[in-house]
Write a protein that binds this DNA or RNA. Structure first.
Length: 603
RNA sequence: UGCCCGAUGGUGUAAUGGUAGCACAAACGACUCUGACUCGUUUUGUCUAGGUUCGAGUCCUAGUCGGGCAGCCA
């Protein structure tokens, strides 16, 4: 198939091809649908995470490649579990993830709009078209399954009239028993053969609130002996005397997922309903309901793909809640969380999440993707755009004994070495500076080419220095290094081209500013923490280390939108929550690759 | 002892009956005022057994292994 190049992300991988896209391409060629419409249907009962990112990228990606729309729909058919608080967070996270990539595809609807009655080829029909969220109309909102409760009810009545659904009085327990087991057929409910009139009456009374919760249910009349459990007269409606966050107390009967989902897709004109593998067994039911109704427009179809499961990460709503509740992390937006909010706060660009989610591919094979692939994607996105700065995380004082106190030697540092037209900024070299404590070793391991007693190293953007003396305290800890600067090796100096093996970063002791820097690492020590019910014991005790660092002064005016590379250390950005004008707090998004850290022979 | 889905290097993914490729990871090397980036080289793969075919990762049969399904959750 041919796909449009990814215009919004130059240099990114070409639009992918996979078994679902092949099907869509075929349908486009056949003109099976007037338009390609997909949907992303989260249940508003939790925050979106890395696993959802894949579903978002597939659904929006396919809409994007085919000039279609992807509707954001709240799958809110269970008032007991869902809360309005999550709706806004979901909208915000989706917009963030697709920003600059598929903004045009985001389908919303007018506030309060419900499917409208229309006639198609002489048949009565309901339809609710998307309005592009980008159109700038003020009163737009996402789709809600709950906004279709009237139409869904009408369709249920129609199923009863067609003899395809009946009201069942079996208790939940008896319903389970009658259902049988995977290797054992079920048996018909004693209420299966009620007349249409009786079913209509009972269903109306269910709706009118005459019965207690779970006293009766509406069931599809399919086949209690089907080898597919979902075809054994599945429930369509249950009685729940519970208020709903969208419809208030208008309803005391609520549709179940299988009934609501396929019809919601249909009402919105969805062409391809893409979901994860565990719904494969539901597909025959999805098709059965739509076919039983004799609908007017082309029917949507469901296709399933395997979820994204990164290593070293939990992608289970229940377990993420546990992390938050047991204070293993500091809330849903903790930068160590795989939630979109957490990733965003950590400084991960949406483009990196997309690169990862899209790169994982679309298959039906249950796989785990190495977290290193994600980390690589983050570095790939950040490297070309991050402004370079100098910062020292764990400072150790270094005195350049041949430089006069109080004097500043201006050096020129490059902001964006990856740019074709790099820009620069001045930084000041002074008699007293800080270097990274890792960059000095009194007893250096083999192949150590940082600073050591009697050794030479280049101060990045400045000059070569030689270590003359190591000053220690009574306990034997190094407190200060005394070195000589060779100013002839500065830029413009006669010996600027002199080579030494090592180059290290530094900041002026007098010009630099202090800042809190949070060094984040993987939350778990084992690749598949979810395998263990007692997963909390695998938490990485060093997943967060907070240090007081020294930064070059230009960082004082940083904003949380900016991305920085602290040279030789990693990518950092201002914490959007805890930083304030008087307080600098930086998060490490991801470290630079460090081949030296794992060099053999290194202690 | 039911039905459904799947299986390609360490990991993920491509090859649509015709040279098993790409990415990540790993190892080595070049370059380097970031032990980064970039570049080069290398290691490692079609679950098993039959069959169809000039030719099979691909098609067929059987098996093995893994996953899903018995919520009035989604």
């Amino acid at each position: 198939m041919t796909v449009e190049p990814n215009a919004a992300a130059p240099g990114a991988a070409p639009a992918p091809s996979d078994f679902i896209r092949d099907i869509v391409a075929q349908h486009v060629a056949e003109k099976r649908y007037p338009k390609i419409v997909t949907r992303f249907p989260p249940e508003p009962n939790g925050y979106l995470h890395l696993g959802h990112a894949k579903a978002i990228c597939i659904n929006f990606g396919i809409a994007r490649e085919n000039g279609g729309t992807c509707n954001l729909r709240m799958d809110d058919t269970n008032p007991a579990k869902e809360e309005i608080e999550y709706v806004d967070a979901i909208i915000d996270d989706v917009k963030w993830l697709i920003s600059g990539w598929a903004d045009h595809q985001l389908g919303f609807k007018r506030k309060g709009a419900a499917p409208a009655a229309q006639t198609v080829d002489g048949k009565a029909d309901y339809y609710l078209a998307a309005v592009p969220a980008e159109a700038g109309e003020p009163n737009l909102e996402p789709f809600f399954a709950s906004h279709y409760f009237d139409q869904l009810h009408d369709y249920a009545v129609e199923l009863i009239k067609r003899g395809r659904a009946y009201v069942c009085d079996l208790s939940p327990k008896d319903t389970d028993e009658y259902r049988g087991a995977p290797d054992r057929p079920g048996k018909d409910s004693p209420f299966r053969h009620r007349t249409v009139a009786e079913n209509l009456d009972l269903f109306a009374r269910m709706r009118a609130g005459e019965y207690l919760d779970a006293a009766r249910s509406l069931r599809a009349k399919i086949d209690m002996a089907s080898p597919n459990m979902w075809l054994r007269d599945p429930l369509l409606y249950r009685i729940r005397h519970t208020a709903h966050h969208q419809t208030g107390d208008k309803w005391c009967i609520y549709p179940l997922y299988d009934y609501a989902h396929c019809l919601s897709d249909y009402l919105e004109g969805v062409s391809h309903s893409l979901c994860s593998l565990e719904f494969t067994d539901h597909r025959p039911l999805y098709d059965w309901i739509l076919e039983a109704l004799g609908l007017a427009r082309p029917l949507p179809h469901q296709y399933e793909f395997s979820k994204l499961r990164p290593t070293y990460v939990l992608v289970s709503k229940r377990r993420l809640i546990q992390l938050v509740n047991e204070h293993a992390v500091d809330g849903w937006d903790d930068p160590r969380m795989p939630t979109l909010r957490g990733l965003r706060r950590r400084g991960v660009p949406a483009s990196a999440v997309r690169r990862f989610a899209i790169g994982a591919g679309v298959t039906k094979f249950i796989s785990t993707t190495d977290l290193a692939v994600f980390e690589h994607a983050i570095r790939e996105e950040l490297n070309p755009v991050a402004q370079r700065r100098l910062a020292v995380l764990r400072p150790i004082k270094l005195v350049l004994t041949n430089l006069p106190a109080g004097e500043k030697f201006e050096c020129t540092a490059t902001n964006d070495p990856q740019s074709e037209t790099p820009t620069t900024r001045p930084i000041q070299l002074t008699r007293e500076i800080f270097i990274e404590s890792d960059d000095f070793a009194e007893v250096p391991p083999p192949k150590y080419f940082r600073l050591k007693p009697g050794g030479e190293v280049r101060l990045k953007y400045a000059c070569i220095i030689k270590c003359d003396e190591v000053v220690k305290d009574a306990a034997g800890h190094v407190t200060e290094l005394r070195c000589t600067a060779d100013l002839t090796t500065r830029a413009g100096g006669p010996n600027v081209d002199r080579k030494v093996k090592g180059t290290i970063h530094w900041v002026s002791a007098t010009e630099s500013i202090p800042a809190e820097v949070r060094l984040y690492d993987r939350l778990f020590l084992v690749p598949e923490p979810g395998l263990d019910d007692n997963f909390l014991q695998h938490i990485n005790p060093h997943s967060l280390e907070t240090v007081t660092a020294r930064l070059e002064p230009s960082l004082a005016s940083a904003t949380s939108e900016q991305r920085f590379q602290f040279e030789r250390l990693g990518y950092f950005s201002l914490d959007s929550k805890d930083a304030s004008p008087g307080r600098l707090v930086f998060n490490r998004t991801i470290s630079l690759k460090d081949t030296w850290a794992k060099a053999p022979g290194k202690p």
